[in-house]
Design a protein around this nucleic acid. Structure first.
Lengths: 350, 350
DNA sequence: TAGGGTCCGTAAACCGGTTTGCTAAACCGG
DNA sequence: CCGGTTTAGCAAACCGGTTTACGGACCCTA
């Protein structure tokens, strides 16, 4: 056994090769500045010694890290459970990889997002689900990191990518109204975004879309027809159970995410009701699996993966400093009608 | 406008406060060594100047990065599309966050995984789906990084977490045999693991489980009853279409992932056949959504999230150097029967 | 043969922190 | 009033690279 393996440094290689550190550095990064023989000799020795330039030291001098951060206000353990996030990440990863950037997830470490931000080794940040007025966003800004806000509905100094949440929600509500439903429930997404976030987060926008559309039809939902929960299958199931337990028997459900919609469907089935026979359900996101659920989900489509791609592209352009005024893009949403919604059941059957 | 914002360094704070760099450093990391007044004064000035210790510089001296890497042989853009991976990541993230570690994904950058490994700023690595003999694994080893192999079936010097793939596959095949199926198709997972990976990757193990069980019943599948594709919905759909187009009309399908199973079901429906009426399908993984598909999926359950958790726990223990002999753990699998499988259709109906 | 380019390589400064002695002053009991 | 112990803070080395500025050797040319 060797003694405790000390890392091989550039100095070791230099000494062994009888050259300066500079020469070794050049051999790796700037071989043209060296005699070709010297360069290959150095590289050979480096290889033989198992030398790898320490990426941290390299970063320190070059002042770039080669990776971009994804900032989420919620624990990754919950976030990764949502298929929506997988697709979004896939979008980000695709263009990041292609451009040579690694991916680093920044989430509350032991409860503190701020702390995670300070620890983060990234050249730029894509923040998802954090509104502009969040203190953490300010933290990023003060750290001088380029940033793009996703789903924040900002028009501030930070670039942003959004989706027409309100419009999508309108479509969903209108669809149910057309089918004759008047007794609805809303399953809203829980999370720091709405807690800390002021009046214009994703949740608020979708909620506004729902309510205003219903209001036009003269419907004003009581408080116990609205339940809040995490954007997961279980979250949706529990949220639906709460409105059920409150004694409400809606004929249709507006869920703010497909995962929640699926949870609601499970709960409905479990209570012996059928979808869409007795209860219609419409989701939000249109994840890959939405077409394969039982029954296939009627939902509001948003370009999830495209959103991720657009966000990184925008971030990269900000990082390259080609920015004058901050860019704000809004992507479209549309309703996809499948089989989880249908006409309201015959009156009086209940 | 200020002139180009230069980062505030520790020296700036020191100068402004009329103390040494040491004092500033102490104020942040070791306040007890300073007079309490001095410490608060320094902190105050730091705050006022907007000073944040540069995490990279800090890492250089402390020789730790505070994050762990997830190494995947495939592009993240495809990997994230598989719900299996989301659950796995959630497991990893949960314990990593709790222990104060960030998460960094290491995937082929511009085609080169080796390059990504050298760039990676991590204290340890969880490698998923890479067998021990992969050259990249060696690269990590030579970089001196602690590592845990997941789904690699290794018994080498690196710690590992596995799952009883072969046993699970046996259960799946036996289940179909019991239902009377004798004309089967297998949808296998494509990927670098099987290409580079030698004869004992996940795919090989599952395949062996399938084939040996079938062999006992005297069944030997022809080559065109086996199709390979990426572990995604589309991958499964296309794979099934290939066996269909080859003229085969299996009464049952063994898919190596739930995503592929769902894709197969879509393809079957699209051809006007029913599941499980005319064709039975069994998946692998038991992702969250498997219970909510149409029809609910019969599948081999593996503790995906638990696998991630176990991997990080193991990695952390390796990182703490509490290792003597390398640990190899194997988690159990079991069959979950839902509604995508049923008895073989009446003979002669075809 | 002086002057001007290349070519090859080096010493030293630098990136932005942390950590290790070390010292000067204040404090303390006898 | 003295030797010994704390307390508070500093200078300098260090982490492991990159980059700048410089110089010697060699070759051409006028």
């Amino acid at each position: 056994m060797e003694q405790v393996a000390r890392r091989v440094t550039i100095a070791d290689v230099a000494e062994r090769a009888g050259v300066s550190k500079t020469a070794v550095s050049f051999a790796f990064n700037n071989p043209d500045r060296l005699n070709v023989d010297t360069a290959t000799r150095i590289l050979g020795i480096a290889q033989e010694l198992g030398y790898r330039p320490d990426p941290v030291a390299r970063m320190l001098t070059q002042r770039r890290t080669g990776s971009i951060g994804i900032l989420t206000p919620q624990d990754l353990s919950v976030i990764f459970t949502n298929p929506f996030f997988g697709a979004f990440s896939a979008g980000i990863a695709g263009v990041a990889e292609e451009r040579g950037y690694g991916l680093h997830f920044i989430s509350p470490l032991q409860g503190s997002l701020t702390r995670a931000i300070h620890r983060a080794i990234v050249d730029g940040v894509v923040a998802i689900g954090l509104t502009d007025d969040h203190p953490e966003i300010d933290e990023v800004r003060r750290a001088g990191l380029p940033m793009v806000l996703v789903d924040s509905a900002t028009t501030g100094d930070a670039a942003s990518i959004d989706v027409d949440d309100e419009g999508g929600a309108r479509l969903a509500a209108a669809h149910l109204l057309e089918l004759g439903h008047r007794d609805l429930a809303i399953l809203a997404i829980d999370g720091p975004r709405s807690a800390g976030g002021g009046a214009h987060g994703v949740v608020e926008r979708r909620m506004r879309g729902y309510r205003e559309t219903l209001a036009v039809a003269g419907i004003d939902l009581p408080a116990d027809a609205i339940a809040i929960g995490p954007a997961s299958i279980d979250g949706g199931r529990e949220a639906f159970e709460r409105v059920w337990d409150a004694g409400r028997r809606p004929t249709a459900v507006l869920a703010m995410s497909d995962a929640m919609a699926i949870g609601a469907i499970r709960a409905i089935h479990q209570r012996g009701s059928s979808v869409p026979g007795e209860v219609s359900v419409v989701g939000f996101d249109d994840i890959d699996l939405a077409a394969s659920t039982d029954p296939p989900l009627t939902t509001v489509h948003q370009p999830v993966q495209g959103k991720g791609e657009a966000a990184v592209r925008l971030l990269l352009s900000v990082m390259e400093g080609s920015s004058q005024a901050p860019v704000h893009r809004r992507l479209e949403t549309r309703l996809v009608v499948r089989s989880s919604t249908g006409p309201v059941a015959q009156v009086g059957r209940r």
